[in-house]
């Protein structure tokens, strides 16, 4: 039992160990290879890294709860883009003209409502049709992206509100606004997964669906709630990011679903559900962002970065499988 506890802790800690390794590697390698003079572990650099982790990080948190539940959501990138369009465009709608800067919370709410509603639609289809979430959200990924293009064609949707930009660029207590949102969401989702009946049931459903059904847990509604949560978080991620940038291209957010899944898997969440933690996902997000930044710092280009991240992902899953082998008695494949 002691061994198993240690193994469990080791696994949860693995992602943090990996992050430490990255920090050491890039600090040392940076001394020889870096083109810039600044140290890699410079405070401003690290704060920026956290801020840049936020858009995918917030989505990855939602992906964690959906994957723990035994589902997956491929439509988050499209929800991200559509919510951003709603956020920026609604601020220019004539009906809100008299509101002044009060249009900001209204637009935020509209964007968040959009994301939640799109997530709810995903969840409702998965629940009522019983079609696999992979297929349902693959379809809605295409569909929602189609809506983005229908809205404004190939044109970017832009609207820069300086009050909003100030808000997004603020650094209360040293951390960027986006970082605060990332940390806040991590805390709330951790609480939700570990402290509420809904969270524990989400684990149970992903772990052993039949046992959950036998125990009268209503699987469908729990799944739908989780899809609403990830939809909400995708919209929140968009709201935070585009408050600052003020312009969204119809292809923005493409592949975000895959980056989010990568972060979740690196964090040790089981693809089949039942096991995972948002804290580890947070680690996974940081690890990916560190790799990107670090490889850039030592002079690698984007293509190399993607190649390395891909290789590391496969290596991590291979290690995980080796650690989980049942021993010699298992059937050979």
């Amino acid at each position: 039992m002691q061994n198993e506890n240690t193994a469990r802790l080791l696994k949860q800690g693995a992602i943090w160990g990996f992050i430490v390794l990255e920090l050491i590697f890039f600090s040392v390698a940076g001394k020889f290879l870096s083109l810039s003079d600044g140290a890699f572990m410079d405070l401003d650099n690290m704060l920026l890294l956290l801020k840049q982790s936020a858009p995918i990080g917030i989505i990855a948190l939602g992906m964690t709860i959906v994957m723990i539940n035994g589902n997956i959501d491929l439509s988050v990138g499209a929800i991200f883009a559509l919510s951003a369009v709603i956020l920026l465009d609604s601020m220019t709608w004539p009906i809100f003209e008299g509101l002044g800067d009060w249009v900001i919370p209204v637009s935020w709410l509209l964007a968040l409502a959009t994301g939640t509603a799109l997530g709810a639609l995903n969840g409702l289809i998965v629940w009522k049709t019983g079609v696999d979430a992979f297929i349902v959200t693959l379809g809605s990924m295409l569909g929602y992206r189609g809506l983005v293009f229908m809205y404004n064609g190939e044109q970017p949707t832009s609207n820069l509100n300086w009050t909003l930009v100030d808000f997004a660029e603020a650094q209360p207590l040293g951390l960027h606004t986006a970082t605060w949102f990332l940390l806040g969401c991590t805390a709330v989702l951790w609480w939700l997964l570990n402290r509420t009946v809904h969270g524990r049931n989400a684990y149970a459903i992903g772990d052993n669906r039949e046992a959950a059904v036998n125990a009268s847990i209503r699987v469908g509604p729990h799944m739908m709630i989780n899809f609403m949560i990830i939809g909400f978080l995708a919209a929140l991620s968009a709201a935070v990011f585009y408050s600052e940038s003020g312009s969204v291209n119809p292809n923005d957010g493409s592949l975000y679903e895959l980056w989010a899944i990568t972060a979740v898997v690196l964090g040790g969440t089981k693809l089949t559900g039942g096991r995972g933690s948002v804290i580890s996902t947070f680690g996974g997000v940081i690890a990916i962002q560190l790799l990107r930044k670090g490889l850039g710092y030592i002079g690698a280009d984007t293509e190399t970065v993607n190649l390395v991240i891909g290789l590391i992902l496969i290596a991590v899953l291979y290690l995980d499988k080796q650690l989980n082998r049942k021993g010699k008695e298992e059937l050979r494949i």
């Binding site: 009946v197 524990r200 049931n201 684990y203 149970a204 772990d207 052993n208 039949e210 046992a211 959950a212 036998n214 125990a215 009268s216 847990i217 039942g274 096991r275």
Partner: peptide
């Protein structure tokens, strides 16, 4: 056995009936 392996014994015993 019909158990959720990743959850605690207590949660399995009260699966579907967790006290709130």
């Amino acid at each position: 056995l019909s158990l959720a392996e990743e959850l605690s014994a207590a949660e399995n015993i009260y699966l579907g009936e967790l006290p709130r």
